[in-house]
Design a binder for these strands. Structure first.
Lengths: 207, 207
DNA sequence: TTCGGAAACCTAACGCTGTTAGACAGCAAA
DNA sequence: TTTGCTGTCTAACAGCGTTAGGTTTCCGAA
């Protein structure tokens, strides 16, 4: 029995070593360098070994995405926990999101590209979704803002952050500017959600 | 000379036929079906012929992206031209953007994936960027809202639309819901930009 | 201690990909 | 008619993800 558990341990170890090595390659050389032979070679194995730990390349990439969302969630949660005011809590968490994308551009790309199945990615992102949801319901409660559909609010905020992070990946924009855009967008959303109801829209004819 | 112009015409024709065929394959079967042999075969040629019209597969894909942004721009401009009020003009154009993504999911994916170089994509999107910029400066002028950095505003709006369109591609969200999210996000941004300056942020300590 | 079986790993190969080289046909100009 | 260019082909290259089949290694039971 002790040997069999050791085997299992070794198996799990090999699996996580593959993931770790793949992460390094991804961050250093981008998604195009992530070949099965290359990943296996980096831990001094041949390609078929990968298929004893993952059903295929897609499963390995999904594991990378899952690990990525865990890290992202941890960083967002950490920042959210340190904030003093509820508004700062939202803004800082948004900043953390964009900062993560800026610090791990290739990983962030993989976390949002069609390389990995969209629904699998969404499932992996679930903790982040919930964090954003909690964050905004907390914010709304503190400001006594009624929310008919909190999930919708969360999705808007989450999608907006992703939009700004995407802009950051464009060379002529970059992540410093994207961070400012994210800040502005979030401030605008918060202001609107607080203001909503107090102001009707005074519209004007188009020129 | 007449024969040489005919040759040029035929060359240009073959090029655009390749693009057209590639577009059809893309929309029907997705980006993974877009292989050089397949595209060439669809116009009854062999693969190497593609390299006499494009420097490589990347150039062909970029041409698809450029054509896509032209169509997107045309649809947005058309919708913007029909709007009655300045607010509707912005909202309708935003809706058109998300609707385009919903109607051409694979093309939209290609227009935003890392498959094509990010800066090339950004260049191809320039008309759309300018349209959004004009739209929002017009909106601001109509409402007498001062804008210190119109480009920043435009980027926020544009990025937000992209964020919502990205959410639409997730199966459990979908484009009908994404369209509503886009509407809500844009309304919120407009409201905030109009309200800004009139309201300070009354913040509260985090719970 | 020896034997049987399972697990781990390898080599070799398949069919696919983007891409290039070199040969061949057909047409325009000299 | 000959020369040369243009367009197209076949054949091949290296690389990809993936699978089949054989070989080694090691554990547990007889």
């Amino acid at each position: 029995m002790s040997t069999s558990t050791r085997r299992e341990r070794e198996r799990a170890n090999a699996r996580s070593r593959l993931i770790a090595v793949a992460s390094e390659i991804l961050e250093r050389e981008g998604v195009s360098a992530l070949t099965v032979r290359r990943i296996a070679g980096e831990v001094e194995y041949t390609a078929p070994v990968v298929y004893q730990h993952f059903t295929g390349k897609g499963a390995l990439l999904l594991a990378l995405v899952e690990a990525g969302y865990e890290r992202l969630h941890a960083q967002m949660a950490s920042v959210a926990g340190r904030a003093v005011t509820v508004d700062d809590r939202v803004l800082d968490t948004g900043r953390a999101y964009v900062a993560f994308a800026g610090a791990n551009p290739h990983l962030y790309q993989l976390m949002n590209d069609a390389t990995v199945d969209a629904d699998d990615r969404f499932r992996a992102a679930e903790p982040v979704t919930r964090l954003v949801l909690d964050l905004l319901t907390g914010w709304a409660a503190a400001h006594r803002v009624p929310m008919t559909d909190p999930m919708e609010i969360a999705e808007v905020a989450w999608g907006t952050m992703h939009g700004m992070a995407s802009l950051g990946q464009i060379g002529t924009i970059g992540f410093p500017r994207a961070a400012r855009l994210a800040d502005q967008a979030l401030r605008a959303l918060l202001l609107a959600w607080r203001t909503d109801g107090e102001h009707g829209v005074r519209d004007r004819p188009a020129g």
